[in-house]
Nucleic acid binder design. Structure first.
Length: 332
DNA sequence: TACCTTTCCCAACTTACCTCA
DNA sequence: TGTGAGGTAAGTTGGGAAAGG
């Protein structure tokens, strides 16, 4: 039989019995009693009592232990339990391996399975239940760590993308500014030449008036003002070609440029009209937002309407596979 | 049928022990 | 050999669900 006898925390034992006046006690309570039996020096038991000495009888003489425990774990297991007496024992690697395999199959434990596993591993059912509880807790912690890592990686990538886009946006703004300055200089130059020619040839006054029509009274060109009609389109073409040859050719590809100068007349007119309603700041912000929305892989609702097939290269689910949802660990 | 009690199970947190560097 | 950190078995607490009176 067992070495060291059976130790019980007297108050705990009393509590267990008082809580369960009816016999036989529930399997839960029996599990607890079993745990105490097999682990006499259970934590926190400074008032530990050697139950055998105290009561002067064997634990197996207790009526509620008859039948049930032998039925559940068998006499052999009972003996094994007391071989573990004295100290808290770690499960053997074989036991852990077996439990792990079972955990992979199903991380919840039905009562029948618990008893069966306990029999096979020569442990108490409560030990098996506790192992599964702790294993689920460990799994959840690990899962949380992994999910945190994934989210952090996703965040870092988005942030770096954002930084790149912001830089690009700044660059484009500078470019637009330079182009506008160039355009203004050209207009001014044209105006001066017209004025000087106008004195000699008054027949050109209409053209001069037309050019002046797009300018404000203070002489500066209205920021973002949309040129209108075919005449305007010709002016755009002219400005476009000169600007392209002067600046754009040395810069990024045309696809990166968000400019009304490269659009069809009607489109340019509409967009220019829209832009004319904003201040420079709003314009910049709009541009930025447009860039982010287009480049950060979010499909436009009005264009696609359906998100079932995200565009290629799009950060679908923020980089997570669909089945890899963070907060769906356990189907309760 | 609503309410209460009991029982069971679980998650979350904590404690105590063991192992190892 | 003493010690602190990390892992793990087990205890405690509180809540939800189901069953029965």
């Amino acid at each position: 039989m067992a070495a060291g006898g059976k130790l019980f925390g007297a108050s705990d034992m009393t509590t267990l019995l008082l809580q369960n006046e009816r016999f036989p006690p529930s399997s839960d309570v029996l599990d607890s009693i079993w745990a105490h039996n097999s682990n006499p020096t259970f934590p926190g038991s400074k008032s530990m009592v050697n139950f055998e000495r105290l009561s002067g009888c064997r634990v197996t003489d207790r009526p509620f232990l008859h039948g049930m425990e032998k039925e559940e774990t068998g006499e052999e297991d009972y003996e094994v339990c007391f071989h573990q007496a004295g100290k808290k024992r770690r499960l053997t690697s074989e036991q852990v391996q077996f439990l792990e395999k079972n955990f992979e199959v199903e991380n919840k434990l039905e009562p029948e399975r618990k008893v069966q596993l306990a029999k096979e591993l020569r442990l108490q059912p409560r030990q098996v239940a506790i192992w599964f509880q702790n294993r689920r807790a460990r799994f959840k912690t690990k899962q949380l760590e992994q999910d945190y890592g994934k989210l952090k990686a996703s965040y870092d990538k988005l942030k770096s993308d954002h930084d790149i886009l912001a830089k690009e946006n700044d660059k484009l703004k500078e470019e637009v500014k330079a182009l506008k300055n160039r355009l203004n200089a050209r207009e001014k130059e044209k105006e001066d030449s017209h004025k000087s020619e106008g004195n000699a040839d008054p027949g050109d006054s209409e053209a001069v008036n037309s050019a002046e029509g797009d300018q404000q009274k203070d002489g500066t060109k209205k920021e973002g003002a949309a040129p209108k009609g075919i005449t305007v389109w010709k002016q755009q073409e002219e400005a476009n070609s000169s600007a392209k040859s002067d600046v754009l050719d040395s810069e990024d590809t045309e696809a990166n440029h968000h400019s009304w100068m490269q659009q069809e007349p009607a489109e340019a007119e509409a967009e220019a009209a829209e832009y004319s309603d904003f201040s420079q700041d709003e314009e910049d912000e709009n541009l930025m937002r447009s860039n982010l929305l287009n480049l950060a892989c979010f499909p436009k609702v009005e264009e696609d309407g359906c998100y079932d097939d995200p565009p290629e290269g799009c950060c679908n689910n923020f980089g997570f596979p669909v089945e890899d949802h963070t907060f769906c660990f356990w189907p309760y």
